[in-house]
Design a protein around this nucleic acid. Sequence first.
DNA 1: ACCTGAACACCGTTCAAGT
DNA 2: ACCTGAACACCGTTCAAGT
Lengths: 179, 179
Amino acid sequence: MGAAVEILDTEGLDALTMRRLGTRLGVAAMSLYRHVPGRDALLAEVVNRIFAESVAGRPEQASWPEALAAFGVSYRQVLLAHPNAVPLLATHPVDVELGLRLLTELLSAFEAGGVAQADALTAVQSVGVYVLGHALAQVGTPPGADPAPAAPEEPFYDEWFMAGLLAMVTGFEQRLASR
Amino acid sequence: MGAAVEILDTEGLDALTMRRLGTRLGVAAMSLYRHVPGRDALLAEVVNRIFAESVAGRPEQASWPEALAAFGVSYRQVLLAHPNAVPLLATHPVDVELGLRLLTELLSAFEAGGVAQADALTAVQSVGVYVLGHALAQVGTPPGADPAPAAPEEPFYDEWFMAGLLAMVTGFEQRLASR
DNA sequence: ACCTGAACACCGTTCAAGT
DNA sequence: ACCTGAACACCGTTCAAGT
């Protein structure tokens, strides 16, 4: 399954095809159907695998607003490390069970701060969809345009990202503090 | 071009194909290439057309935080009215010129409130990507699942959406008020 | 049991040919 | 000038056949 992520990162989403993955693994394309029900299931696995990177080994000693912002930042880092995967994350939702399991630590920071679990989930999910939406805006080029990434815009996106993230975290902090 | 939106809304994104659009218009698929350079250009036009609905005829007499929240709400309404278009909006960025033109009125509300244009753009774009990300989460089902929309979850998404939106607007309000 | 070639029903797009 | 049929190079997936 790592081979799928490799093709995605190096050759793009369109190249991640059953036939191509098959030849990469030295096997006929149809043999893949023994291990996975179809292409969409394969893409779903890729999505889950990449999302899992977002929460791998983060230090978790902070107030919930700090932890929430840190989650946003590290989630974004993973997305920008796999630009070709961003449209995939947008299209194939992360498995709910897996997501909750991975975010346990983060949610416990809210609990320690006396925030109700429903409110905590709302805040975390809001940051999650903001991060994904922002990554789409940064990475997304009309499919077919030449792949010159043009890094000069990077600081613009970085500043924009932090402004929106901090606005959202500040807003939740204020609203959840008033009980 | 309205025919493309029609197919998208009623039959889904996968059905919006050159050949199918051609037969819908009573013409050979290849004749479409006289009017549009290719499929991606067609999808880009669909995206712009749908995004334009988001700002059609909104009343614009309010403080910028109110106007910003109103934009988020109406943008979301349009996305939910075209669920099959949401993945498209995520993948094909709205034309920048068009977007700025459509948002002129909203941006002027910030100007009237004494907010610098760069800060205004950041706030508007942040809300925009949040709305899109949220719509993706609500509409997105693993492609291939049965299309039973299951409306019972709707209030959950509505509440989540408003909580995140208001947090963000509140956050910007607070940060931009301190000059 | 596991793998696979050929086949089916599609795609977007090109291009030479028709009116 | 405008349209189009056939063709090219692909897809995901099925299925009967091979070992």
